[in-house]
Design a binder for these strands. Structure first.
Lengths: 106, 106
DNA sequence: ATAGTTTATCGTAAATATACGATGAATAGA
DNA sequence: TCTATTCATCGTATATTTACGATAAACTAT
């Protein structure tokens, strides 16, 4: 873009948008669902479930990490990922607040 | 991208991601908040509230329209927008289901 | 030591998103 | 009719995202 103006918005709006962005690709939604189902997943398992190359999955995992939605740890040659529930719950609340905001007033 | 693979995911995951994408820019979050506050807004009012050019705001409004989150109507030379609560509530439910899914099992 | 496994990162190509000014189309008001 | 207002759309520049193969780094097992 000619110039990025995202920083000129309210902090809460930027945070909310960043969270939404983390979930704006079906691969990342699928990863979150897989992590939710198994609680902990190694990278290879996720790669097998998705119709994407290993390097692409790694890239999506990195984005979820950057957004803070998941945590990663290393076990030998394998990488284990799980949902960061503390951060995730915070965003869940922020979403609920947003939805409430848009409800019709009586 | 070399090739778009989004369509290879589950329909529900694609829908969810599309909704998240609609809210993945602070300008669009700010627009939704403005519409929620006033119930109905004319385009010009929104442009005044945002630090963006009129054409850029129009573009963001179009994306929210495409996602189905808002509805638009014309009144003389003015354009009026409001939240499409039916669609919005559907997505709200879909978000809640997603959040529930990720909760720790006992 | 050597070979195999696993995964992050690099380089790159192509698609999409963001932003603006200019323009055009439609209406309102003089 | 002429002018002003409002807003969508077009064209365009630049940034970001998505995707892959190749490679490197770190560990495991032989």
């Amino acid at each position: 873009m000619a110039q990025n103006k995202k920083h000129e918005f309210e902090k809460s709006e930027i945070e909310f948008a960043d969270f939404a962005k983390a979930l704006s690709h079906p691969a990342r939604v699928a990863i979150m669902k897989a992590l939710a189902k198994k609680n902990v997943c190694i990278c290879g398992e996720i790669v097998e479930e998705l119709p994407l190359a290993q390097s692409t999955v790694s890239q999506h995992l990195k984005e979820l990490l950057n957004a803070g939605l998941i945590k990663g740890s290393v076990d030998g040659t394998k990488s284990c990922y799980c949902i960061d529930r503390k951060v995730f719950n915070k965003f869940s609340k922020s979403f609920n607040a947003f939805f409430l905001l848009t409800q019709e007033k009586e």
